[in-house]
Simulated assay, not measured.
Amino acid sequence: MKKTAITYGTFDLFHYGHLRLFQRIKEFSDYLIVAVSTDEFNQLKGKKTIIPFENRIEIVKNIRYVDKVIAEESWDQKLNDIKNYNVNFLVMGDDWKGKFDELNNYCEVIYLPRTDGISSSLLKNSLSGFRNLDISSINSALEILQQIRNQLS
């Protein structure tokens, strides 16, 4: 019998932690559905994405562990998705622990630990420092890198 899992997320600035999530889910399921949050839904959640929905969903579609990609448009669609796709496992990061326990009546809810040291929020925070750089700072950094490269040649 085919075991189907579903997970939900924004998947902005796709990174190793996202990939590991999909890999780990495929270790105990045969078919993985990934619901990618739309830009409109992220606005309702108070999240601002860097990568537009159309690009995020295209990235996820092209990950070999993913069998189907759907749009996540609201909080309450999870139950309908579980029923419509005959889902055996709802899998979320452990930062959501306890939030979807009521869905255990319809499938097994699993909260997986997040990958240490990486998250889209961390990436966004580290990138935010670059916003304050001016062109002369960037040119200086490029000159230093060129000097290092010349020394290594």
Rank of each mutant, 00 (worst) to 15 (best):
Lys47Asp: 12
Ala141Thr: 14
Phe14Arg: 06
Asp94Ile: 01
Ser37Tyr: 00
Leu145Trp: 09
Lys48Phe: 12
Ile138Ser: 13
Leu127Trp: 05
Ala5Thr: 13
Leu19Ala: 05
Leu79Gln: 05
Leu21Thr: 05
Glu108Lys: 12
Ile63Val: 15
Thr4Asp: 00
Glu40Cys: 11
Lys99Ala: 10
Phe41Tyr: 15
Gly17Asn: 01
Val36Ser: 14
Tyr106Cys: 02
Asn62Val: 05
Arg149Ile: 01
Ile59Gln: 04
Ile148Ala: 03
His15Ala: 02
Gly117Thr: 00
Asn125Trp: 04
Phe89Gln: 04
Ile51Tyr: 04
Lys78Phe: 03
Ile59Asp: 00
Thr7Tyr: 12
Thr49Val: 15
Val34Lys: 06
Gln77Val: 07
Asn125Ala: 13
Ser119Gly: 04
Asn139Trp: 02
Gln43Met: 15
Ile63Trp: 05
Leu142Thr: 12
Arg131Lys: 13
Ile135Arg: 11
Met92Glu: 15
Gln151Leu: 13
Arg64Phe: 09
Gly98Arg: 00
Asp81Met: 09
Met1Gly: 14
Gly46Trp: 07
Ile6Cys: 14
Ala5Cys: 13
Ala5Pro: 12
Arg114His: 03
Asp134Ala: 08
Ile144Phe: 13
Ile135Phe: 14
Tyr111Ser: 13
Tyr65Met: 14
Glu72Tyr: 07
Leu142Tyr: 14
Tyr31Ala: 05
Gly93Ala: 04
Gly46Ile: 15
Ser140Met: 08
Tyr106Met: 02
Leu103His: 12
Lys45Trp: 11
Ile6Leu: 14
Leu13Arg: 05
Ile63Thr: 07
Met92Ser: 11
Val109Glu: 03
Glu58Ser: 09
Lys2Ser: 13
Leu112Trp: 10
Asn139Pro: 01
Ile57Ser: 01
Phe28Ile: 15
Leu13Trp: 04
His18Gly: 04
Phe130Gly: 13
Ser74His: 06
Lys3Pro: 03
Ile63Ser: 10
Asp30Asn: 15
Asp30Gly: 06
Ile82Gly: 04
Leu142Arg: 15
Phe11Ser: 06
Lys97Leu: 14
Ala35Met: 12
Leu112Cys: 04
Ile59Lys: 00
Gln151Arg: 11
Arg64Gln: 08
Gly17Glu: 01
Asn80Phe: 11
Asn62Leu: 09
Leu13Cys: 12
Lys45Tyr: 10
Glu143Tyr: 05
Asp94Phe: 02
Thr38Trp: 10
Lys68Pro: 02
Val36Phe: 12
Asp81Trp: 04
